[in-house]
């Protein structure tokens, strides 16, 4: 069985301060972490590997030749990792539509897979397009927002939350499954593997490959669909807003306020 895990990095929010009044973002520490949901997807892949045996291949969400997340994945237990170089890295912005084409071609070049796992959403932009887009490009079933995944008898089994109830669902392999942030407790990288992969020593370092995107797709046709048009800042925090009215009216206003702030 081959499991492909797609991982990206995000700027560690602990190093960022947003000044709403000035409309500015201060990056005090430019440190990156693996996108939390993607870490859970990696953990899911490694648990399936532990249970049933599988080759786990890590691919990046983005085209940057910086491969920290892939080194982390190798140190944590992935068998193989591939990062992309080429013109695509010079794009001002590689959106999920671009990455879908690159990744779909990469899945094919790897000889297909039984399961593609990735995070259901990114911590920074909150977008969750990559999994479903890739499922569409590959023509595979998708399970979005899983709390847990296993692969048994040629099927992907997952747990989803629907209206306060946890449901078990299944789809035939191959399939794309996206995993929720916090769904699984990720394991830590192995210390020796981590040192070796950074020193470039041994098997684990040799498992990191570099692929040129031009060998996979026609790079000239890779144009992002989305364009960034600016930033906006929420109003400064206004404390002590009192809700008036009957309890039912207060409940309605509170529900509206909570819906805006609780992403589910």
């Amino acid at each position: 069985m081959r499991i492909i895990v797609i991982l990206g990095r995000v700027l560690d929010p602990r190093g960022i301060v947003v000044n709403r009044r000035r409309g500015r973002i201060f990056i005090n520490r430019e440190e990156y972490i693996i996108n939390p949901a993607d870490r859970c997807a990696l953990e899911a892949a490694l648990r399936i590997k532990d249970a049933a045996g599988a080759e786990v291949v890590a691919l990046p969400r983005g085209p940057l030749p910086d491969d920290d997340v892939l080194r982390q994945a190798l140190a944590t237990g992935a068998d193989r990792a591939v990062y992309f170089v080429g013109q695509v890295a010079n794009l001002p912005y590689a959106d999920d539509a671009v990455m879908t084409r690159v990744l779909a071609a990469a899945v094919e070049r790897l000889g297909g897979a039984d399961l593609v796992l990735t995070g259901s959403t990114t911590l920074d932009t909150g977008q969750g397009q990559l999994g479903p887009r890739l499922a569409e490009a590959l023509g595979w079933p998708q399970i979005v927002g899983a709390w847990d995944v296993e692969a048994v008898d040629g099927k992907a089994r997952a747990i989803l939350l629907r209206d306060d109830d946890y449901l078990a669902v299944e789809a035939d392999l191959p399939a794309v499954v996206t995993v929720l942030p916090g769904a699984l407790k990720p394991r830590y990288p192995d210390g020796v593997r981590l040192i070796n992969v950074y020193k470039g020593v041994g098997e684990v370092a040799a498992a990191l490959e570099e692929w040129d995107v031009s060998d996979l797709v026609d790079e000239a046709a890779l144009q992002p669909l989305l364009e960034k048009r600016g930033q906006d800042f929420p109003p400064e925090r206004e404390r002590g807003v009192r809700l008036e009215g009957l309890p039912a009216e207060m409940a309605q206003a509170l529900a509206d306020a909570l819906r805006q702030r609780v992403c589910r």
Binding site: I16, V18, L123, D124, T125, K228, G230
Partner: peptide
């Protein structure tokens, strides 16, 4: 972005 720390505008 980051659950509403700030917002980005895209088209």
């Amino acid at each position: 972005i980051y659950g509403g720390e700030y917002f980005e505008i895209a088209a």
